[in-house]
């Protein structure tokens, strides 16, 4: 009988990265993180823990927040990937979230910042005016080893146009 089973994927993987169509000839099992950084030279996405915990490699796949270290590149065939490099406008003008992180000093050493900015972008797309508690809840998975969390929360609230006073300035209960 003729084999009815489809053959493994060997064709180039077609994916849109930051609005650009890309054709990737690479093993589909490779983590998207490695492909972004090593093949596409998009080094804004950082490698931290490599096991989906720290959030340094946060990216958007069809607008949904994911860990690039846990996504095999084959999984994003036909889908749209956004990295921190894709958030600024066409002329390089920073996004609302990026501007707010600058204005509120929402970073210290900077290694977690791309992931924080991508996660905050995903949050505001789902919930345009979150409370400080909702920001903390949503961004629980984005670790800042400098522990600069207060200014990160303030930056997200500022990007949302929510006042950064009141409960945002207080320690969490």
């Amino acid at each position: 009988m003729a084999s009815a089973t489809p053959r493994p994927v060997r064709d180039a993987i077609q994916v849109t990265v930051n609005g650009q169509a890309r054709s990737l000839r690479t093993p589909p099992a490779r983590p998207l993180l490695d492909v972004l950084r090593d093949d596409l030279e998009l080094t804004g996405t950082k490698e931290g823990c490599s096991v989906g915990v720290c959030g340094a490699c946060s990216i958007l796949v069809d607008g949904r927040l994911m860990s690039a270290c846990l996504v095999p590149v084959g999984m994003v065939a036909g889908r749209e990937v956004t990295t921190v490099e894709g958030l600024a406008g066409p002329d390089g003008e920073l996004s609302r979230v990026q501007r707010a992180f600058l204005e509120c000093s929402g970073f210290q050493c900077g290694i977690c910042t791309p992931g924080q900015v991508v996660a905050a972008t995903a949050l505001l797309a789902e919930n345009p005016s979150p409370t400080a508690d909702e920001v903390r809840e949503y961004m629980t998975g984005n670790l800042c080893r400098c522990t600069g969390y207060y200014s990160i929360v303030r930056a997200v609230l500022s990007a949302a146009g929510t006042s950064a006073t009141g409960d945002a300035a207080k320690e969490p209960a």
Binding site: T5, P6, V9, P27, A29, G74
Partner: peptide, 18 residues
């Protein structure tokens, strides 16, 4: 490591055959 062949079936029947 991580160099497995990658299959993308579209039905349960194809999956079962694989």
């Amino acid at each position: 490591m991580l160099l497995f062949d990658y299959h993308r079936p579209t039905t349960v029947a194809e999956t079962a055959a694989l």
